[in-house]
Design a binder for these strands. Sequence first.
DNA 1: CCAGGAAAGATCCTATAGGATCTACGAAGC
DNA 2: GCTTCGTAGATCCTATAGGATCTTTCCTGG
Lengths: 222, 222
Amino acid sequence: MTSPAPLPPLKRSTLGDDVYSSLRSAVLEHTLPPGDRVNIDALARELDVSPTPVREALARLESEGLVRKRPLAGYTVSPLLTRAEFADMFDMRLLLECAAARWAASRATEAQRAELVTESARIIAPGDDRAWHAEFTALDAHLHDLVAQAATSPLLRDSINRLHAHLHLHRRYFPYSQTAVTNEEHRAIAAAVQAGDPDTAESAMRLHLTRARERHLVAFDE
Amino acid sequence: MTSPAPLPPLKRSTLGDDVYSSLRSAVLEHTLPPGDRVNIDALARELDVSPTPVREALARLESEGLVRKRPLAGYTVSPLLTRAEFADMFDMRLLLECAAARWAASRATEAQRAELVTESARIIAPGDDRAWHAEFTALDAHLHDLVAQAATSPLLRDSINRLHAHLHLHRRYFPYSQTAVTNEEHRAIAAAVQAGDPDTAESAMRLHLTRARERHLVAFDE
DNA sequence: CCAGGAAAGATCCTATAGGATCTACGAAGC
DNA sequence: GCTTCGTAGATCCTATAGGATCTTTCCTGG
């Protein structure tokens, strides 16, 4: 009698993987600023590895759209989204995340519903500094991932996560502060998923994303 | 007075990019069979390059899900989809491609609409051999990409193309032969896009995909 | 002062070599 | 006969070196 999966999946890793994680974080946190050129040798020295695994990590990041490659001229960090690209991203979010909310409401496990409710009830102690904003952003990303995960569709979750990488990139430049409203919208989504009501969950998500789009779009009017 | 983009974007490429294209084709055409181990050195010799660019290409393919990596133990070609994964993929196709059809109907240029109609009217001379089936599959992929492109959303098109890679992988193993019906469904979609009717375009796509799913799913009942 | 061109420097890309790890095969023990 | 262990071979991963390309700077000419 063998147990299904009692052992953690055993996470070994190669240098290339570690460099990948490090670089991905650096891009998302703007340690590597958008638009900047990426010097492979300099990065290798900085991380104390050879250029080979750095190059491998960059190849993966390019496939995710976080960096861009110009043959024989090196990599650059992807620039911030234009207004049109940002609008396109929110069209996609509306498409994917509304479906995720719907499916989560009908397919999530009890544990997933409970966690969603718990996490959406968390309140980040309000403040006005950078650290607080980073924490709030992280919570938001976590909540949306919980919904994507609860939808029980690996492909959907993966697609949503790709979008959120670019959203995160944008957010660090243009923070907004209406967090109270955002929290309320999150709780509405969680409640609908908890209740197992697909229609309500979807419309709650749609309302949330529509408003979020408006909150973000003002950043382009300057 | 500067012209918008009269010059082709100048396609230089590095060895890593060429290896990537070659390997991608090899995986999609099952020259590298699903599930098989990928010997980096052997591939390098086969392509007459060093292992370095091969490794870079594999890193990108892994990000697309076409190969899988086990640290310190090499890469394997992704296995064929299970029934559950296949069903998930079609759920995603319904979500993404129906939206693509809708947007294409309202946003496509005249040239795009015309090309869609023209291409959907093409008839692949019927036969029963492998070459004919490959040609039919290629046409189908091309048509769906035309719709995705006409939707004028780079993110949506990219997501759809990722799905189609896995669809293509599956198709080569389980061909089906009801091409006459498929052609008819394609023409219905094209007509709706041409007419600029989003609702009809979406429902035509939905009907097409729903039927296609049924045509494919029988492959799992053996 | 500005445009055009050439050379020097920096950077990228690929190949090769060596250490580390995994896999497969065969022998020893129960 | 089956399991366990150890070794040999194959394979992977990383570092380094050198050729090729791009970028920047400086100089010349107008």
